[in-house]
Amino acid sequence: MDAAVDATNNSNSVQREHRTYWWKEALIMGAFYLLYSWSRNLFGSAHISLETGEKPLRAFHNAERIIHFERTIGLFHEESVQDWFLRFRGFIKFWNTYYGTAHFIVTFAVFWILFVKRKDVFPQWRNTLAITTALAIVGFSLFPLMPPRLLDSPCPAQGGFGGSCIESKYRDEGPDGLPKTEDDGSFGFVDTLPKYGGALWTFDSKAMKTISNQYAAMPSMHIGWSSWCAFAVWPLLRRRWAKIAVLLYPAATLFCIVVTANHYWIDGVGGQLTLA
């Protein structure tokens, strides 16, 4: 009898020990995201002075290194991909909206599903997301990277965070490294958000310029988080169409970050590595 009582008490103790509360998890993740945003913005564009006209040389030259590497392996096609789709204005607006919303909505939804449906593994997946995000901060600090959309945008002296004032041999070369037939002195990327719209925010707003590190591109957390969502929710799915949809989510996100010129495709590889 005493043994049975002890077993029951031990069972209740274990249950209490592993009990999770939604408000506690929400506070933890909210605090972590605020810490992530604060620490991410300690580097990169947050330290570029718009008043003095400081040039973002480090972020720009890192972008040149990425372009050189992708050209070397024959896979620098981001500008060609974007250029083909720019004719479809509504299509681009959709992906601008996707870029600014799905990243948060889908991640939160999967986080909640795990909390409700898989409390046994919820702590592991929560910690995996936190570690992945923390590793990204290391990447942002060690390798500030100017995204494609900013390569031809105004420099700080003109009130922006771009690299239009910085000379580069890559402005005169096509994706294959050969001289352009029609040289316009640009990389050819378009910053789709201010030109096409489609999102509830803009990088050009005063608030975003103050709180956002626009050189936090390597690794891509859009890819890191979307891959986390796919892996985390996969065991819960039974229908084939649902599994296919989950696998397509990171692929769609990769297309999004390229067609909107927010990332190079290799940033996505970096995002995968932080999750690995």
Rank of each mutant, 00 (worst) to 15 (best):
A207W: 15
R58I: 11
L129I: 03
D2A: 11
F187S: 04
H103K: 08
R118G: 13
I137M: 15
P147R: 11
P154N: 08
V106S: 00
P235N: 03
I166T: 07
P194A: 14
G198A: 11
A217F: 14
R71H: 08
F60L: 09
T133C: 03
Q158T: 09
S39V: 10
Y21C: 12
E64D: 11
G44F: 01
R149V: 03
F231W: 15
N262F: 11
A157C: 10
L200S: 15
R19I: 05
L135V: 12
L247S: 09
V116K: 11
N127P: 12
F189H: 13
F69R: 13
V259A: 07
W23A: 15
R171T: 03
D152A: 04
S164H: 01
I211S: 02
E17P: 06
R126H: 13
Y99L: 06
F94Q: 14
K243N: 01
S212N: 15
W234C: 08
Y36K: 00
A3L: 06
W23H: 14
V14P: 00
W95P: 06
F140D: 09
T97K: 14
M146C: 06
C155E: 04
W112E: 10
H77M: 12
D183V: 00
L114S: 01
W125P: 08
N62S: 03
Y98D: 10
C165I: 07
R126D: 14
R40Q: 08
F122D: 00
R71Q: 07
I66Y: 08
W38G: 07
W241V: 08
K243F: 00
N12R: 06
I166V: 09
G188S: 10
G163V: 02
A3V: 08
S226A: 10
Y249E: 08
T133G: 05
T133N: 04
P123T: 03
V81Q: 00
D176V: 07
A232H: 06
L129C: 14
E17C: 14
F255M: 02
V259W: 07
L247I: 11
